[in-house]
């Protein structure tokens, strides 16, 4: 009931957000230097040819009219054709989004439990060596950009010291048939998001472990394991879920650099290629996809927050 209302409201807000994003995306592609017709025809195109292609692409129509045409196609699922390969955009990005989702899903599935455990473990060893080491390590990792971490990983595990994993992805076969290529990109993404979640989990757990109901549970003779798993952790998950949500949403953006670095055939690399080739329809579709992902992940985080907090889940009797 309360949850249904929340989901409904957030979905409505999400739709508005996507509408605003679509305006921005469309506006930004108007401002991009160069024009799509020239990008299609190349530098040596004659003015006559350019005019014809412009007319075909409705480039001479007023901007609002072009926006409406684009947006209504978008809503009906028609993402248009790539201006480079002339193939439908949807076919181009379907495989790529699958690859990216795979990468993000594995990164999230590794990073979330790892950082929750590490954060709790660190909180339980408050002010001991292990705690300080965790705090320092996560701070260092959090302040390094992904490409530095990625390059370091490539150097250590792929090209330099150890040659355990391939540094780049082979384009000739599907990603799933070469699982070892996933290791380094996943590791880079995990190292990018896990420090924040770990630090947040540590701070929240410290607060919860110092709360009256944890003291009371101990005074009631509840074994330490139950104090931790049945009283402390459930009360810490809610606030941390928000940070996990933000970090997973961040993955969707952070993936651009990482995919580029490892030549991983996902939407991030797709964006880079689309920008280089002035492939506006593909670019627009990819950005809308990432925006939708943001909205969904944040909604999911709110839902987890509500589910772990009875005060929000149930009304006051």
């Amino acid at each position: 009931m309360a949850l249904g209302r929340l989901v409904g409201r957030r979905l409505a807000v999400g739709t508005v957000i996507l509408f605003v994003v679509s305006l921005l995306v469309f506006g930004a592609s108007l401002l991009l230097p160069g024009d799509a017709a020239r990008a299609v025809l190349g530098r040596s195109a004659s003015p006559d040819r350019l005019a014809v292609v412009r007319a075909q692409m409705h480039l001479d129509d007023p901007a609002p009219q072009r926006y409406l045409a684009w947006a209504s196609d978008l809503v009906t699922g028609d993402l248009g054709n790539s201006t480079v390969s002339q193939e439908p955009v949807i076919e181009l990005i379907a495989g790529r989004s699958g690859n990216s989702l795979l990468l993000m899903a594995i990164a999230a599935l590794v990073a979330t439990p790892l950082s929750l455990l590490l954060g709790s473990w660190s909180a339980l060893r408050r002010d001991q060596l292990a705690d300080h080491a965790t705090a320092l390590g996560t701070l260092v990792l959090a302040s390094l950009p992904e490409f530095v971490v990625g390059i370091a990983l490539i150097y250590v595990f792929a090209t330099g010291l150890l040659q355990w994993f391939p540094p780049v992805v082979s384009t000739t076969m599907p990603v799933l048939e070469q699982p070892s290529v996933l290791v380094l990109p996943v590791a880079t993404l995990v190292l990018a998001v896990a420090p924040y979640i770990t630090r947040m989990m540590r701070a929240t757990m410290l607060e919860v472990l110092d709360s009256d109901f944890v003291h009371q549970a101990r005074l009631n003779g509840i074994p330490e394991r139950s104090v931790l798993w049945r009283h402390a952790v459930p009360n810490a998950i809610g606030p941390v879920a928000q940070v996990i949500g933000l970090q997973l949403a961040y993955l969707a953006g952070g993936i651009v650099l990482v995919e580029f670095l490892f030549a991983y055939p996902g939407i991030g690399q797709g964006i880079v290629e689309a920008v280089n080739a002035r492939d506006i329809p593909t670019l627009q579709a990819l950005i809308m996809l990432i925006a939708a992902f943001y909205v969904l992940v944040n909604l999911l985080a709110d839902v987890v927050g509500v589910l772990t907090n009875p005060r929000l889940r149930t009304g006051v009797a």
Binding site: S211, F213, A217, T308, N309, R311
Partner: peptide, 8 residues
């Protein structure tokens, strides 16, 4: 108000 676990 603080000694009971709010989530149980």
């Amino acid at each position: 108000t603080t000694a009971l676990d709010p989530a149980m």
